[in-house]
């Protein structure tokens, strides 16, 4: 704990700048604003043009580890491209300006993620990253991307939020957090910055859907069906990612835990 106890006091001791003192409308106005997004990303990205501090020395990776990292980053690129294309389509689907503005910030985040991963591939000696991404992409994450974009193209906001901001973002949040702990220092810094963005995306997804389901509880049935279609693809993508990272089954952190907790809170467990 890093706070200093002052002593007993009543509620008048509540700091006037305490975020927990905001009312709900003010809270959402604050956290879904462009200025909030800009100040937040400035905090952890300033001075990191490609997602890491430029003076960071690049470790020399043995050929096997380098190959694995390239495959991993190629698959991250598929996920980020899916998120970028999905989020940009969802700007138009958003049911209100607050959500529309938030999705616009997410589009910028996803574009940056794709850019920093492609740049890292170049640093690892990949001369044509786009070609390499196509060659190394796992079928599950490619199929997930197609499914997500079909939901977006169909104009299905709730399903798209579930697929992108709950399913895909939870997958990325779990894998990236784990990978950041074991990766070379530059990749680790890049992943840390991406994870910070993912917090906003998955939180938006859960809270938007949760709020919607309070008023429309029968929509759960449809989301459970969509979950049934997408679950195997998400798990396949996760297996592929952990395999690329060289993790044996017993070492793999449980996506299931974070993911199941999220869908359980939303009441859309099948």
């Amino acid at each position: 704990m890093t706070s200093t106890q002052l002593g007993a006091a009543g509620s008048e001791g509540l700091d006037s700048e305490e975020p927990h003192g905001l009312d709900e409308t003010a809270f959402y106005r604050e956290v879904r604003s462009f200025s909030f997004w800009f100040e937040a990303v400035e905090g952890y990205l300033e001075g990191r043009p490609h997602g890491y501090v430029p003076s960071t020395p690049d470790e020399e990776l043995d050929p096997r580890r380098r190959e694995r990292l390239i495959t991993t980053l190629c698959n991250y690129c598929v996920g980020e491209a899916a998120a970028l294309e999905g989020a940009s389509g969802m700007v138009r689907l958003a049911p209100n300006h607050n959500s529309r503005i938030f999705m616009a910030t997410q589009v910028a985040d996803e574009a940056r993620h794709l850019e920093v991963f492609l740049h890292r591939l170049g640093e690892l000696g990949v001369t044509d990253p786009e070609l390499e991404v196509r060659r190394r992409a796992h079928p599950s994450i490619v199929a997930f991307k197609h499914q997500l974009l079909e939901l977006v193209d169909a104009g299905d906001w709730d399903a798209a939020v579930f697929a992108l901001n709950v399913l895909l973002e939870t997958l990325e949040f779990t894998v990236f957090r784990h990978h950041a702990r074991t990766a070379d220092v530059i990749t680790s810094q890049i992943l840390d910055g991406v994870v910070s963005d993912e917090r906003r995306h998955l939180g938006f997804g859960e809270n938007t859907l949760g709020h919607h389901l309070v008023g429309h509880p029968t929509d759960r049935t449809r989301l459970i069906e969509i979950k049934g279609h997408l679950d195997s693809l998400v798990m396949g993508a996760l297996d592929g990612a952990y395999g690329d990272l060289g993790l044996h089954r017993g070492e793999r952190p449980k996506l299931g835990r974070d993911y199941l907790q999220a869908v359980e809170r939303l009441g859309i467990l099948s």
């Binding site: 106890q5 002593g7 006091a9 937040a40």
Partner: peptide, 13 residues
């Protein structure tokens, strides 16, 4: 209720 002075923690998000 006890009250606390909060220090910066390095959190930048």
């Amino acid at each position: 209720r006890r009250t606390f002075v909060l220090d910066e923690t390095g959190f930048k998000e």
